[in-house]
Structure formats: structure tokens, C-alpha cells
Simulated assay, not measured.
Amino acid sequence: MKKLSVALAAALFVAACGGATASPSGPALTGDISIDGSSTVYPIAEAVAEEFQNANSGVQVTVAFSGTGGGFKKFCAGEMDANNASRPIKTSDKPGDDGVAGTADDVLSEATICKNAGIEYIELKVALDALAVVVSKENTFVACLTTDELKAIWDLDSKVETWADVRAEWPAEKIDLYGPGADSGTFDYFTEVINGEAKRSRSDYTASEDDNTLVTGISGSQYALGYFGLAYVTENADKIRAVEIDGGSGCTAPSADAANDGSYAPLGRPLFVYASVAALARPEVAAFFRFFLENTNELAAEVGYIGLNDADLAAAKATLEAALK
């Protein structure tokens, strides 16, 4: 972790004094906080947890990454206090085998499963991300890919096998594909905006919920291609590089500015944390999420993500305070 700014150090002092939930003379915070979900949001949540625990030694914050969907399964079962998500929670139920909506065999959405289990939650936007399409540093021929080319490579029943199948002037070498698993919000987001339907994807690629595993695979093959959050590119810039993406308005590299101004469409996206309302009734959880929102922009930037604008940050804080009343 980089050296703390004056603002963050001051926030840590307030948290250490119990100022997030009680008077400075109140008891020290204690307890355990459990968070799972997106591997993309993980670096932000882990950075927040580290700094919060530095100021509150009686609180243990555990952050894991089983993917957005995997995390929601645990969250909606009441096993987690919060879930990190690289996409919004799914809210639409789908007909089951009988093809009729509203019957017993419906495939229930995450929101419905949570509701049926009595899990109330709030959605907090905590940062922005530019989803990066990545190649090895040894790849010298790919500078930019169009969204149509990405769809040709990644779509269900794709016939693309080699780089020459994408552009004739590229090497006739097999593309080694790497990407997130089916429980990942990154997988859902990418397949929806590139292939036109969430989870619609070829399956003959190396999948992992651990983005560091994907980095290792891509960096080890000159002809590899994969996708994940920009933070992992920034962290591993000596091994891999992001290619520019042309969504119809010219080739654009992933960056904070491009995500904020919309020029990195369609691969710029918001990142979320979903917090259990019941968990927020505990003082250590309330203090943690107040601390999270007070410091998310600085800590997100430190780990390679993009901070919220003033309006979005104010909206997140208002949502949290309303749930704490």
C-alpha cells in the first residue's frame, strides 16, 4: 500500500476513535465482517479492509473472491455480510423447462432468491472499471481489436482458431484463450456487451475466477488473449499489455478518462458492493462501509481503478445513511 494521504490518514484517525458510529469515548469496535464476490472488486475491498483494520484492531475483515455470481449465492443464503459485484444483481426470473413464467420450475434471479430468504440489501456503487482485453508483452502484432472481431473470437460456436482467422495478415498461430469463469460478473458483462447475451460464449478456453491465474497464462504465451479488470493490467504491466478497442468510434485504450467520458464503450462499467441491511445494524459493519465510501476514490485509484464523480459518490453515501437510520 502506498503512503497514506493526509485525508485518508485523518479518516483513519476518525475510524480509530469510533467516530464513524459513536463518540470518541465509546467502546472500541470488535467483530468479524465477511465479504465475497467479484475478483475485479476484490483489490478495492481488500485495500479498504487493510486500512480499516489498521485503525480497528478488534475487527477482522475477510475478503474472498468466488466471482460475482458465486458470491451472490453465499450472500443470498445469509452466509456473507456483503458481496462485491462487477455487474448489478440479476432481477429477472426466467421460465423453466415448461416455458411458462410464474410457475414452480422458474429459474429464480439473485434478487428473488435473496427476497425469498429474507435478505434485504443495499446497492453501493464504489468505483468504475475499464474491462481490458489483454495480450502478452511478446505479442507485437495486435494493437487494436474491434468489437466485431471480439465477438467473432469469443461467441458461442466461434470458428476462429488462429490469429489469421481474425485478420489474414496476422500469424496463423492458435489463439490461447483465457477468461473468467461462468460465476464471474466480468464474464456476464463481457459476454452481454460483446456477444449480445450474458453467458453466451465459447467454452474452449482456460477459465479461472482468479485474475492472477489468467495473468500468468497470458504472459506465458505470445499468442494468448484474455480479458479482465484494468487493475490487473496496471499491476502486471511488465508481463502483459491491454490492446485498444474500437467500439465504432475508433481505437481507444482503457483508461480512467476513457471510462468516465464514455469513449471506451462498451467495456467501461461501474463496480458495486451489496451490503446486507441486517449486517449494517452491527456497529463494526456500519463503520466499515462509512469508511469504505469516505476513502473509495483514493484507494480505488491506488489499486488501478477509477473513482466516482461527486454525484455518484453522494448518492452512494445517501443510500448507506438511509439504511443506517
Rank of each mutant, 00 (worst) to 15 (best):
A168S: 15
D188Q: 10
V134C: 05
D246M: 07
T186F: 07
I44W: 01
V135D: 03
D238C: 01
N195R: 10
T68M: 04
N56A: 07
V193L: 06
E284H: 15
K174M: 05
T252V: 15
F75C: 03
I245K: 08
D93P: 02
S221G: 00
A164Q: 12
S158P: 03
A287M: 09
G247H: 06
A253F: 06
A11N: 15
P270W: 03
E173W: 02
N212D: 12
A314I: 10
A258Y: 04
E149T: 04
P171N: 11
I175Y: 09
S221T: 07
I44A: 03
E51D: 11
K325Q: 14
A7R: 13
N195S: 06
S25C: 01
P171Q: 11
G247C: 06
A49E: 02
A101L: 13
A258S: 15
L308K: 13
V285P: 05
C251I: 05
D211W: 08
K3C: 00
S255M: 08
A275C: 10
L320H: 11
V41D: 12
V41C: 10
T234V: 13
T252M: 12
A253L: 12
K137H: 02
E209F: 04
A77V: 03
G70M: 05
C251K: 09
S109V: 02
G18P: 04
I245Y: 03
G220M: 06
L230F: 12
A152F: 00
S23H: 09
A15N: 07
N212M: 13
E235P: 00
A242Y: 08
N84L: 15
P27F: 01
G58N: 04
A314W: 11
K115Q: 12
E169W: 01
A322S: 15
V59P: 01
D210W: 02
L156M: 13
G181P: 09
E110K: 03
A258E: 01
E161A: 13
N309I: 07
A9G: 15
